[in-house]
Nucleic acid binder design. Structure first.
Lengths: 232, 232
DNA sequence: ACAAAAGTGTTTGCCGTACACCCATGG
DNA sequence: CCATGGGTGTACGGCAAACACTTTTGT
């Protein structure tokens, strides 16, 4: 009973790590990347990642690569995105790659090595391999989930005001969101809990804002889109 | 410049192939499986699939495995589900597996080899490896997409009556759906097109049913669940 | 008193459900 | 003419968007 030889592949794990980061005036949704120190694509921006080791899952590999190599151990949410298997996606050697989406709260300011940076996703430079497609997939997934789950907990600080949350949603979604309706929708879905505290008003006056927390900080589907529900 | 040796993996592609099939009285949602002819899990039910070859994508591999090995070349829709990488998922050798969801129209009756069969997903027998989880993921994905896309085109015959479609949705979703509202929802979303033809009424009488087609037979999101939409 | 920012009330419109009612055919 | 199944009309409830209006602060 001889078993036929089957091909074996280099398998890499990539992290699409997103964070809403302050900018001049407004905030922007950014993705963690670093400059490649070698060919192929020397000097091009690439996602952090690396080859899967023998005894680990792909998710463990992503965590290891993103956490250690970039001094960042604060992923509030992580989920698998997709696996990319085009034979030509790595010009040097056949490599299958699995991308994970990771979200980092806005108040985390990890110190990055020199070769790493946060790139704004709406003005992304040319990227190595098929990493631009992975970023696009990750952003699309996050945006969709902002609509029907509580993922925003992974982008927000532990405590926040509605105005802060409004800016966060606007940056993450890519268009302006109204604070009024945002509060109403999230309240109706039971996502928001008032801490009872109030934030001091700024130098220009104005009513002090109430401080909120997310009710739960693990992923939940708050608005199941099931049209055609079971009746009765 | 010595490159460190990285581990290489056997990579397999699995197909979660779903079809709504007639049964005594009602229809049932079924998944294509076959009995394993060897260890591990000899005799257990398993999903069709096999090792990815050197020059092909994972999707090409699934199509090849499902189409040729099971005499079935009529997948109306296919999409990637997820990649499973637990080191112990294959007790014999480390294998990473990527599952694809495939949908077959209800009027297709492919002839299966003896060792293959359609298993009802709501009474699934014990399965080999982590294939039961893959089936669960595939069914969940399909059910979600029935709500906000036109995937039903991939489960339905080219032409059908509303009553037929109602049975199809009921079997696929796992609960009863009302024909009245189904028609209204799909019509409002522009998915249904009347062919103008009518079906002869049965032996018990009754008004003859109008015959419909799906407007498009490629996947489209017909009900984007974006709450917090761009305003203006 | 006035400006600024936060938060609530109210209106409007859409969508999905439920259910009553009308339509067309076989017997 | 009646039973059977197909299809439409209509009312209700929930949700989200828009916007006016009140509340609470700093200057």
């Amino acid at each position: 009973m001889s078993s036929v030889q089957v091909p074996r592949f280099r398998h890499e794990a990539l992290g699409v790590t997103l964070q809403v980061r302050p900018n001049t005036l407004c905030s922007r949704l950014c993705v963690l990347a670093w400059r490649r120190p070698r060919d192929p694509f020397l000097g091009r921006w690439a996602l952090p990642g690396g080859p899967v080791e023998a005894g680990e899952t792909i998710e463990q590999c992503v965590r290891r690569e993103v956490d250690t190599r970039l001094d960042l151990a604060v992923m509030a949410h992580m989920e698998q995105l997709a696996t990319y298997s085009d034979p030509g996606r790595d010009p040097m050697q056949r490599t299958i790659g699995t991308a994970y989406l990771g979200l980092v709260p806005a108040d985390v300011d990890a110190c990055l090595p020199d070769e790493a940076a946060w790139l704004p996703v709406d003005a992304l430079p040319a990227m190595a391999f098929d990493h631009a497609a992975m970023v696009a997939d990750g952003v699309a997934r996050m945006r969709a989930k902002l609509s029907y789950t509580n993922v925003a907990f992974a982008l927000a600080p532990a405590e926040f005001t509605i105005a802060t949350l409004r800016d966060l949603y606007s940056a993450a979604l890519g268009y302006e969101v109204e604070a009024t309706n945002l509060q109403r929708v999230l309240t109706r879905r039971g996502q928001l809990v008032a801490t009872g505290e109030r934030q001091r008003s700024g130098r220009t006056g104005g009513r002090p804002a109430a401080v909120y927390r997310f009710a739960t900080r693990t992923l939940e589907v708050t608005d199941p889109f099931a049209t055609l529900r079971p009746h009765g």
